[in-house]
Nucleic acid binder design. Structure first.
Length: 1109
RNA sequence: AGUCUUGUAGCUCAGAAGGUUAGAGCACUACACUGAUAAUGUAGAGGUCCGUGGUUCAAUUCCACGCGAGACUACCA
């Protein structure tokens, strides 16, 4: 048998074994009980990383556990195939950017490339999924770009439209010009999206119009406003002040012109604007009210506002309370096209926007969708990116903000420029800062149904600390309407067609419906051919022949009720909608499986588990969609998972270079070890610091120990030809009863912990049992029973017990570490007389249940004390440096209320004797040891403190000086009086602790509370000889091992004649013992000193030799 | 910036609803044990319990402030 454990090899063999015997995807068929898991589809934008292992193995554990418990487990694996990450990857590969799509490269070609990338990554993912030992049905998965999946999403969109939750709006949204798409709220809250950056901030002077200055009685007055985005100044069309806060008119020196100027700022912002007090003079203080409605001069007049009745360049009141009076200058500049709140304010107050009318008469913002100023912007700014960070090449970089500041400086419109470090949102994909940009988008009105969503969420069981549940609920309480349109190419197309005047919309909810509309359109002559020809025949759809993507649907022109042409909306749907719709779309609902979901047979699911970052992602979208569609939760139990960090606690990312290749690690340690490590190391929702050294430790400790325990069983039971017989009734030894009791406790705990999803506790319990109870106690103390020659009932009972323990451990650990457990299980079952399966596998077994009758708390408690005594005695030996191999005669244990039962239990006392190598264990009364110890007293401050307050320190001093007779008096009478300032104070025995101190150095004593143990360290001659015999046996054993003799090989021991004579007496007395333990026939006198080995007896050299016979 | 969490051994963390000598695992050192063991056992070393102040007979624990770390929220123009 291979002694070295190669867990990867084991995985491979077992995987092939399962494959050959068709045990993969094993499903219990004769059962009505179902356990449903939804799989959060990972994005196919790249290769799997180490963090993907986590959520997969968690789900796999419950797949296996519930299968063993006779459930039919349904876990359709999913793959997320659409979305920006994939598009970005393809753009990089083709070396193009978003604008090239549809121009340099056709959309069809582009989408084909996206599909190809997805397919390529998909293969890697399948390989990866196998490598971590994930149970799944290869034929039964869902993939979000399949036409069936898309059709389900279309149906959902139509339902939303019918429920009047879908609406189109023109909104200023976070927008990533480089990715060319708006960023959803969730995406903006991804980790690391808010970054610290350095911007130029400017204090800008807005000149009040002359007609407004009567109140101030000054000629020229400026409003000072502060901004970090000077590029928005050309689109400024209003200023904001708060009518209820105080503003001041300040006279100060304009450095450049060396002239005084008058500026207005909020009173409390004075320290932001001026560092030194002497530099200004306050002329007037007034409420913001005075400013509202006043007009100012446009700051940069490159573009005039569109001619309309709308208001422009006016001061408005801050109804939304955005202004903080001590921040900036207390005056906000408003650019309705480039700020979310700015847009709202402009809409409410009817403020004009700064827009540019192009050739076709369309009005556009002065920054285009690529994040560049339009060509018409003067001073060479046209065509320049508005943020320096958008440039790919350093050489071309151009700072628009700087240029605008320069221009304004020349016009004396800048008061001050300052570098400003602040936190600014970035696009999670491109890592570039976002801007706020007006975009027409489709929204789902979630605010309207917030109460329903929130109420339903209370039914979800979070298998974690409450904090995470609260975070989810907090997120729902602050729900925002969901912008689902993305102006990209590779995604589920929005199934919405509109007329050119944007007045009529048609939402399509199925392919048949689309086919019907196309046929109508053909009759009107809008389309020539039906692209569905041959793909839909008699309403039967050939799904695998349809590729329902943008390149296909954009060519479809439909007709409105009025007979106008209708074109499809440009956008595709947010990928988060794809994955969130998996509840329905993975089953192609409602076109298939309608009853299964409507009648709650596969819905809602029992369990989901993904990373904690999905609180704003998948957990949210899944819940929202099922809340709307079914008025139900989508998942009953959820186990959120922490992030996998590197060993220093930093988040793993490619840019930091601290990622680990999962394939390499899997190959080195095998999936079992990694699975165990991740579960064992910390609670699932806590972040895990992934440390390879710890994986090795897990292997050494847990896997090796379990394996060696098995090897131990294997080695001996093979010699004896042991066969396990389930029905064998054996006489249990005390220690057998103990380990069986421990085992049944473990079975009980483990089963319940699986039900409660407490997987970490499961691994920790099993680990402790295997190492502490089974290997290092049961097997170690039972070794002699296995060694002995006689194949008697005692031996059989030991085999039986060990076999049961091993088997149950394998079965309860199997869901977590399937391959290793199966490997040993198969080997172990060769010893089972009754096993007759052709397909022998742990997969086919039932999860073991505990039996109450086997649990014996008394035995467990007694054993606990024996362990404790043994540990104390060993530490006492250590103090005198008496090694364990040296036998001692006596140990004295002081009787107390705990050891009454042990005292009379010879069996466990024998265990203890062997363990500590002491011949007699004596229980004595406490009074007998009084002469060896000094008693001391300490106060119970908890009781005396509040009673005597400040006097306590003095009392403590008196007590510590009490003499022996006083302490004895206290012990007898249970109280004592002491004197303090001529006052008698009664100290009761409850007010103090008495503890013992060792005074005699020749007596080794342990004393703590009621545990008092003394050992007699006298080593007699005969004890010395015994020690030598044990040493000698050990030396022979080691030699046997070094010579690679088999355990069963019999030998003779040869002693050189001089040595033989020297040891004559010892040999005479101990020859039987030596021969028995070393499997020797005899000890023989030997004349030749050649080839002998040397050991010592009382510093005399002993020459000896062993030979196999 | 705000809110919340958090600061204990080299590392990972317990802990006490103020009270005797502040604990465990890993790592390190020594010794022991071992014919299953790469395990295991016993011990050693390692602490200003983040800092300052307050309450108290007594504060690492409670309170306040400061400093550091993390999470969440947020277009603070």
């Amino acid at each position: 048998m291979n002694k070295k454990l190669n867990l990867y090899k084991i995985y491979k063999n077992i995987f092939n074994y399962w494959f050959k015997n068709k045990l993969l995807n094993y499903i219990r068929l004769n059962t009505k009980k179902k356990f449903i898991i939804y799989d959060g589809p990972p994005s196919m934008n790249g290769e799997p990383g180490i963090h993907h292992i986590f959520s997969r193995i968690i789900k796999d554990i419950f797949y296996r556990f519930y299968t063993m418990n006779n459930y039919k487990v349904i876990n359709k694996l999913g793959w997320d195939t659409h979305g920006l990450p994939i598009e970005i990857a393809v753009e990089k590969k083709l070396n193009i950017n978003k604008n090239d799509i549809g121009k340099k490269i056709s959309i069809k070609y582009y989408n084909k490339k996206c599909k190809k990338l997805v397919e390529k990554n998909f293969k890697k993912w399948v390989k990866f999924t196998n490598k971590i030992g994930y149970f799944f049905n290869k034929k039964n998965y869902y993939i979000t770009n399949s036409s069936k999946y898309i059709e389900s999403i279309w149906w959902i969109i139509k339902e939303l439209y019918k429920k009047k939750l879908l609406y189109k709006d023109y909104k200023v949204l976070p927008y990533s010009p480089i990715a060319g798409t708006s960023i959803s709220h969730q995406e903006l809250n991804f980790p690391d999206t808010h970054k610290k950056i350095k911007d130029l901030s400017v204090y800008v002077l807005f000149k009040l119009k002359n007609k407004n200055i009567n109140f101030f009685k000054k000629k020229k007055i400026y409003l000072l406003s502060w901004t970090t985005t000077p590029w928005t100044l050309p689109s400024n069309s209003a200023l904001l002040v708060n009518k209820n806060i105080y503003y001041i008119l300040v006279k100060t020196l304009n450095k450049k012109k060396k002239k005084n100027i008058n500026i207005i700022i909020s009173e409390k912002s004075i320290n932001n604007v001026f560092k030194k007090k002497k530099k200004y003079k306050i002329l007037k203080k007034f409420l913001g009210k005075k400013l509202i409605g006043l007009n100012y001069k446009q700051i940069i007049n490159w573009f005039k506002p569109i001619k309309s009745k709308k208001k422009k360049f006016k001061i408005f009141n801050d109804k939304l309370n955005l202004i903080k009076e001590d921040f900036g200058t207390g005056i906000i500049h408003i650019s309705p096209t480039f700020g979310k709140e700015d847009y709202e304010i402009a809409k409410k107050n009817n403020i004009s926007k700064i827009l540019f009318k192009d050739k076709n008469g369309n009005l556009n913002p002065i920054v285009d969708k690529n994040g560049k100023f339009i060509k018409e912007v003067p001073y060479g700014l046209g065509g320049k990116y508005i943020k320096e960070k958008y440039y790919k090449n350093k050489e071309n970089k151009f700072n628009v903000d700087k240029k605008i500041i320069d221009i304004l400086k020349k016009e004396n419109k800048i008061f001050k420029v300052k570098k400003y470090i602040h936190i600014y949102p970035h696009c999670w994909r491109t890592n570039k800062p976002i801007i706020y940009y007006p975009i027409k988008s489709w929204f789902i009105n979630l605010k309207k149904i917030k109460n329903l969503i929130l109420k339903l969420s209370y039914n979800i069981n979070w298998c974690s600390v409450n904090l995470i549940k609260k975070k989810f609920e907090h997120w729902l309480k602050n729900i925002k309407n969901w912008n689902i349109s993305r102006s990209r190419y590779w995604g589920t197309p929005l199934p919405i067609w509109k007329t050119k005047n944007k007045k009529n919309f048609l939402v399509i909810g199925s392919f048949n419906e689309l086919n019907y509309e196309i046929n109508k359109s053909i009759k009107l002559g809008f389309m020539k051919k039906n692209p569905f020809k041959k793909k839909i025949i008699n309403n039967k759809i050939k799904y695998n022949k349809i590729n329902m993507h943008k390149d296909f649907v954009d060519n479809i022109i439909l007709s409105s009720k009025n007979g106008d042409k209708m074109y499809r909306e440009f956008d595709v749907i947010d990928v988060w909608f794809d994955s969130g719709a998996c509840t329905y779309a993975q089953y192609h609902y409602p076109f298939e499986n309608k009853n299964l979901i409507d009648k709650n047979k596969i819905f809602p699911c029992n369990f989901i588990s993904e990373g904690i970052d999905q609180i704003r992602g998948w957990f949210f979208t899944l819940h929202v969609i099922s809340s709307i569609m079914s008025k139900s939760i989508s998942y009953k139990n959820i186990l959120p998972l922490g992030i996998i960090l590197d060993k220093n606690g930093k988040k793993m990312s490619k840019s930091k270079g601290n990622t680990l290749d999962p394939f390499i690690i899997l190959k080195k340690y095998g999936p079992d070890c990694i699975r165990w490590y991740i579960i064992y190391n910390n609670l699932p929702w806590e972040n895990i610091k992934f440390n390879i050294e710890n994986i090795q430790k897990i292997k050494n400790k847990f896997f090796n120990t379990l394996y060696n325990t098995y090897l131990f069983f294997y080695n001996y039971s093979k010699i004896d030809n042991y066969n396990f017989n389930k029905n064998y009734k054996y006489k249990k030894k005390y220690i057998d009863k103990w380990i069986i009791s421990k085992l049944n406790n473990l079975l009980f705990k483990t089963y319940n912990n699986y039900l409660l999803y407490n997987i970490t506790y499961i691994t920790r319990d099993i680990y402790n049992f295997v190492l502490n109870d089974l290997s290092n106690w049961y097997v170690r103390l039972s070794r002699k029973r296995f060694w002995k020659n006689k194949y008697d009932n005692d031996k059989k009972s030991a085999y039986y017990t060990l076999y049961i323990c091993l088997k149950k451990i394998l079965e309860i650990s199997y869901p977590i570490t399937p391959f290793f457990m199966e490997y040993i299980y198969i080997k172990l079952s060769y010893f089972d007389k009754n096993y007759k399966y052709k397909k022998n596998s742990i997969i086919l077994n039932k999860f073991p249940k505990y039996k109450k009758k086997f649990i014996d708390k008394e035995i467990e408690n007694n054993m606990l004390y024996i362990k404790k005594y043994s540990s104390i005695i060993l530490s006492l030996r250590k103090k005198k440096n008496i090694k364990v191999r040296q036998p001692l005669n006596n140990v004295y244990i002081v009787k107390n209320k705990f050891n009454k039962k042990i005292e009379k239990n010879k069996i466990i006392l024998n265990l203890l004797k062997k363990e500590v190598n002491i011949k007699n264990i004596n229980f004595i009364y406490k009074t007998k040891i009084n002469k060896y110890i000094k008693k001391k007293i300490k106060l119970n401050y908890k009781i005396l403190g509040p009673k005597y307050k400040t006097k306590i320190k003095k009392i403590s001093k008196i007590i510590s000086k009490l003499k022996k007779n006083k302490i004895e008096e206290l012990e007898k009478k249970k109280y004592i009086y002491i004197k303090l300032f001529n006052k008698k104070i009664r100290i009761s025995i409850k007010d103090i602790y008495i503890y013992n101190e060792n005074i005699n150095e020749n007596i080794i004593m342990y004393t703590k509370n009621d545990f008092i143990i003394i050992i007699d360290t006298k080593i007699t001659n005969s004890l010395k000889k015994e020690c030598w015999v044990r040493d000698f046996i050990r030396i022979i054993q080691k030699l046997r091992k070094d010579n690679k003799y088999k355990i069963t090989d019999r030998i003779n021991i040869f002693l050189y004649k001089e040595s033989y004579i020297l040891l004559h007496n010892i040999i005479k007395k101990y020859i039987k013992k030596i021969c028995k333990e070393t499997l020797s026939y005899n000890i023989i006198k030997y004349n030749n000193i050649k080839y002998t080995k040397i050991c010592y007896y009382n510093k005399n050299k002993i020459y000896f030799l062993i030979k196999k016979k």
